[in-house]
């Protein structure tokens, strides 16, 4: 899922300066899954903002709304009436959702309430970890289903680096498994350690963000 984290409250409060009626909009998809912008977070942030703003002497009216997806036009359309009654929209969706609202409702400020930071999976309750870097040249087929680009602190194509801790954790973060250690273990369990001896050449990064903004057109899907 796309992973996002709520911005610091102080930053959000500051960004609402000058507005009197704000529509706080959550997203029931990725932002909800990562507990940054789902219904629960919307219902938590609304009264919290109210308390913070009243405390700073500038109370505002905060209305809330939930969209199934903020990144699909048909869902974005559902709040059209409610947006008209607001001075600003505070979005708890990922950067895609924020931009979708800003594009559809171009005459009103749309403020991001979260920082979008990674592509993750939930490892366990309350724990998320990177799994994909959207690099555009997937190689997990060569690395036994584990992505060294997203999960190695150095994004090494040929590892381990030598800094792996004795317990198999990363030298950069003792809470994170060394992905190359996991790759080696998985290769060994399949009896394919030799495949890791082959040197992997530099990746083709032209299909990632380094290649400029991405736009994909599939003619077979167009009318």
């Amino acid at each position: 899922m796309i992973f996002a984290e709520r911005k610091p409250l102080e930053e959000i409060v500051h960004s609402l300066n000058g507005y009197r009626r704000v529509l706080l909009v959550g997203c029931a998809t990725c932002a909800a899954e990562c507990a940054a912008g789902g219904e629960r977070e919307v219902e938590t942030l609304a009264p919290l903002l109210q308390l913070a703003l009243e405390n700073s002497g500038r109370p505002i009216e905060i209305a809330t709304a939930m969209l199934e997806k903020q990144c699909e036009w048909e869902f974005v359309e559902e709040i059209a009436e409610r947006v008209r009654g607001a001075d600003a929209v505070l979005s708890l969706a990922c950067g895609i959702g924020v931009q979708a609202l800003a594009e559809r409702y171009a005459d009103i400020p749309v403020i991001p309430g979260v920082n979008t930071s990674a592509l993750t999976m939930r490892e366990e309750l309350g724990v998320w970890a990177s799994r994909c870097a959207a690099c555009g040249d997937c190689l997990v087929g060569e690395t036994f289903g584990l992505c060294p680009i997203a999960r190695c602190a150095k994004s090494l194509l040929n590892g381990p680096c030598g800094g792996t801790r004795k317990d198999g954790k990363c030298e950069v973060d003792p809470e994170i498994d060394c992905v190359w250690n996991l790759i080696v273990e998985r290769a060994a369990s399949r009896g394919q350690l030799d495949t890791l001896r082959q040197n992997r050449s530099p990746k083709d990064w032209s299909n990632s963000g380094h290649g400029g903004p991405k736009r994909v057109v599939r003619q077979e899907m167009r009318l």
């Binding site: 029931a28 219904e39 219902e43 609304a46 009264p47 109210q50 009243e54 405390n55 109370p59 009216e61 905060i62 209305a63 809330t64 709304a65 939930m66 969209l67 199934e68 997806k69 869902f75 559902e78 709040i79 409610r82």
Partner: peptide, 21 residues
């Protein structure tokens, strides 16, 4: 604290909504 509050609760994608309370 002003003792005054006002917010609207919930609009679901299925169209069900609770208007400003």
């Amino acid at each position: 604290m002003t003792g005054r509050s006002r917010w609207a609760v919930g609009v679901r994608a299925d169209g069900q909504r609770e208007e400003a309370v």
